[in-house]
Simulated scan of single mutants.
Amino acid sequence: MTSPVKVHFHLEQDEDGHPPVAVESLWAEPSAKPDEYVIDNVPFFVRDATIGDTVRVREKDGHRWFDGLVSRSQNSLLRVVFFDRECVETVSERLVAMGCSTEYLREHNLMAVSIPISVNLTNVQAYLQAETDAGRTDFEEPILRQG
């Protein structure tokens, strides 16, 4: 059994300094081909790939760096920022109950959400829009692969 590895992604920051990091590292599993890995966690800032995607890497300075997308999974990626931190757990529980995977980064008050093809993306978007309309959150949709 092979061990997961970190794949590093260079991130371009905008004039407002977003994202707040210049590099994000994602866990990945080796694929059948050399220099190709399957992303194994939900990204907080990366916009090029999400969980389940196969990526090509290049080695530099002892690290594996993202070098391109080989094949896309059917997973969509959303991110939620919280204006009301009291609802983080409630939102996460609701999304997980809908069939999504979530990860929360307290330091940046940001939740990354993976939506598999088996989950109705429209329902997830409607729920998050209701939370946004109520002033508790806002969300972005960096990778949409269904609907």
Rank of each mutant, 00 (worst) to 15 (best):
P4V: 13
H8M: 11
H8W: 15
F9C: 01
F9E: 04
H10V: 02
E15R: 08
D16N: 14
H18N: 14
P19V: 00
P20Q: 07
E24S: 06
E24G: 05
A28H: 03
E29F: 13
P30L: 04
A32L: 14
P34W: 10
D35T: 06
Y37P: 09
Y37N: 08
F44A: 09
R47L: 13
D48P: 05
I51D: 12
D53W: 04
V57F: 04
E59R: 14
D61W: 09
D61A: 12
V70N: 10
S71W: 00
R72G: 12
S73E: 12
Q74L: 15
L77P: 08
L77D: 03
R85C: 08
R85F: 13
E86T: 13
T90C: 14
V91R: 06
V91Y: 05
L95V: 00
C100N: 05
S101K: 11
T102H: 03
Y104M: 01
L105R: 15
L105T: 11
E107Q: 10
H108C: 03
L110T: 08
L110D: 06
V113K: 01
I115Q: 08
P116C: 03
P116M: 11
P116F: 04
S118Q: 13
N123F: 09
V124P: 03
Q129C: 05
E131F: 03
T137M: 00
D138K: 13
L144F: 05
L144N: 09
R145W: 00
